[in-house]
Amino acid sequence: MSKLAGIQAVERPPTLSRRAYLQIQQAIRDGVLKSGVMYSENELAEQLGMSRTPVREAVISLSREGIIEIASQRGFRLRELSVLERTEIFDLRALLEPYVAGRLATTRTAEQVDQLRGLLDEQQLLVENPKDPQTFLDLDERFHLLQAEYLGLERTRSTMANLRGAMWLLGFEALSLPHRYADVVREHRAILDAIERENSEDARRAAHEHILQTARAADHLDR
């Protein structure tokens, strides 16, 4: 039997459970869902305009990722990260993100560098007018995950995304850190400049320093 070539897969719209998953995840990121509060799946389903089943499936998925705790017959709540879990998250980021930046420095294209620099230019505008921390954080996430996408490292990207999802349990305030905006952009530019120069060692070093400074800032704010 001959192989078929040139036929692209049909893009399917996200399922209801996937839509519920993404909307719950966004609510966590936006600080709408807060730590220490018990939430009802039925009420959330009504709020999202869908049945309880896809919401339940989304909650179970987030529970498996360690983001949500399900309380039998009572609903669900956000998990609270232990000190050990927080340390582990930043340690894993410090392993993965320098690895990605270092590899990208050996393969980057001018177009990829321009796209990443565009994200940093958008972040810079928010440094000068820090009224939208959510957009700043979205750009931050995109800057890091896009590097893995360029390399085709799907497992690495997925792991990075899951780690960043867990970080939202630190709380929106602990992650937005407006006083860190200028430093974050400067640290991002150091990573990108090294990538553009095709200097893998400098890219890894700059990415590692960025994670270290982020961990220190989050830890200091939480004390």
Rank of each mutant, 00 (worst) to 15 (best):
R180P: 05
L96T: 05
A190Q: 06
Y181G: 03
E122C: 14
E57C: 08
E65V: 11
D140S: 09
R223C: 04
L175C: 09
A58I: 04
Q124F: 08
S2D: 07
E122K: 14
A215H: 12
L22A: 15
A215W: 09
E173V: 14
Y99E: 04
E201N: 10
K3C: 02
P178W: 03
E57H: 12
A9E: 10
E173M: 04
A9N: 00
R79T: 11
A20T: 03
G36I: 04
I195L: 06
W168A: 14
V55K: 02
E65C: 08
L4F: 05
Y39Q: 06
S35I: 08
A161H: 10
K131P: 04
L221R: 08
G165Q: 13
T15K: 12
D222W: 08
P14Y: 05
L104K: 02
P98Y: 06
R77S: 15
E154P: 00
L119P: 02
V32E: 14
Q112G: 04
G171C: 01
G31D: 12
L163Q: 09
K3L: 03
A101M: 05
E43L: 11
E201P: 07
L84T: 13
E198T: 14
E187D: 10
A207M: 03
N129G: 15
L116R: 01
D222K: 14
D183A: 07
L62H: 07
L170D: 14
A174R: 11
F90V: 07
N42H: 15
A182Q: 02
V127I: 13
S17T: 13
D138F: 06
L175M: 14
S158Q: 11
N199G: 07
E196R: 10
P133T: 06
R142G: 10
Y181K: 00
R108E: 03
G36L: 09
E209F: 00
G66W: 07
T106N: 11
Q134L: 15
D222Y: 09
Q134W: 15
I7K: 07
V59Y: 01
S63T: 13
L163A: 10
L96G: 01
Q124G: 11
E88V: 11
A110S: 15
E80T: 15
Q124P: 04
I211D: 01
K3G: 02
T106L: 09
I89G: 01
E209H: 05
F143V: 11
A148N: 01
R93M: 12
E122H: 09
D202A: 10
S176V: 09
L22S: 15
A105M: 12
L95N: 10
